[in-house]
Design a binder for these strands. Structure first.
Lengths: 164, 164
DNA sequence: ATTGACATATATACCGAGTATACATATACT
DNA sequence: AGTATATGTATACTCGGTATATATGTCAAT
């Protein structure tokens, strides 16, 4: 989603080259969300063009290094500070039900059932993952998982609400 | 987000021309989420290319009409039936905190505070909107708003959890 | 020792979705 | 009569993402 800003965050830690950013990103998301390598390089091109990163040159192995600029840091801070907008419609979950309400669609029940089934599986999976994060003492991931679980519980509550 | 499928849903009701789809879409989202008119036509081009819609010709005022095809209906049904995936990271809300955890960022508290403030305002706004929907007996919108409120409450609960 | 698989490393072509903008005609209002 | 706004369609451009090409390095098995 915002690969751009995550690259800025990674460069904030230390200078890196393209491939290092790819691996850094995947480490950040624990290997879930595989990142297409090509996207790293095109994103870096745009970041360099916009003066948010710059290159001090290549390392011994001829890999182009990148560092974050002052403007880049400011962009990153601004992004972090800016609250995310939770629009009613940008969430595909709700938007789908909105569309469904406009087609004479007899299978509303199966739609709800499918969705609920998937979410219950997700909850099981995340609960399991949460335990692993507790064991490996990964507090950030544990935190994120707990957030996702809260969301899923809200979703299921809503599905039950509208199922009547 | 999925303008494409919402156009299919609108064409499922009845044949329309481009501009009618634009107004139909904006009616669907109650005027929130302004749709760029150009996007309607490029999306229709792709839908026609993929044989999901077709044109029976122009009306008296020379506006090109579109109808949904059988393949288009099947695409729409499949999309409606397919549960939305709630990835841990595709949600910018969590992803931002993940990035923040990787920059030595002293302003975590203000980040949380900003986000919470915005969300409390959103709750007020949606609560007000909900009342209007009850008065105008718009059950679908009322339903969506209640879903969004459940999400916002979950978000705030989470922000309080991590604020320590 | 060589083959084959996999990791490292970068680059390009292409597509879908969204924004900006141009360009008409019709209608309403001042 | 002139101007603003609604109706109606189209194109150029950008961004983000996917697929794919390509090259080198490393390690394991035959």
């Amino acid at each position: 989603m915002s690969v751009k800003h995550s690259l800025l965050a990674l460069l904030y830690e230390k200078p890196r080259h393209g491939y290092e950013l790819k691996t850094g990103f995947e480490e950040l998301v624990q290997g879930m969300w595989p990142l297409n390598a090509g996207q790293v390089y095109t994103t870096l091109d745009r970041l360099e063009r916009d003066l948010l990163v710059e290159s001090p040159g290549h390392d011994k192995k001829d890999r182009k290094l990148y560092t974050i600029t002052q403007a880049g840091k400011e962009e990153l801070w601004a992004w972090l500070e800016k609250p995310v907008g939770r629009s009613l419609f940008k969430d595909e979950f709700y938007f789908k039900f909105l569309c469904a309400s406009h087609v004479t669609y007899e299978n509303r029940q199966s739609m709800i059932r499918n969705q609920k089934e998937t979410m219950l599986k997700d909850i099981l999976h995340l609960t399991h993952l949460r335990k692993q994060m507790v064991l490996s003492d990964n507090k950030t991931m544990k935190m994120l998982i707990e957030g996702a679980l809260l969301h899923l519980e809200a979703d299921i509550k809503w599905l039950d609400m509208i199922a009547d």
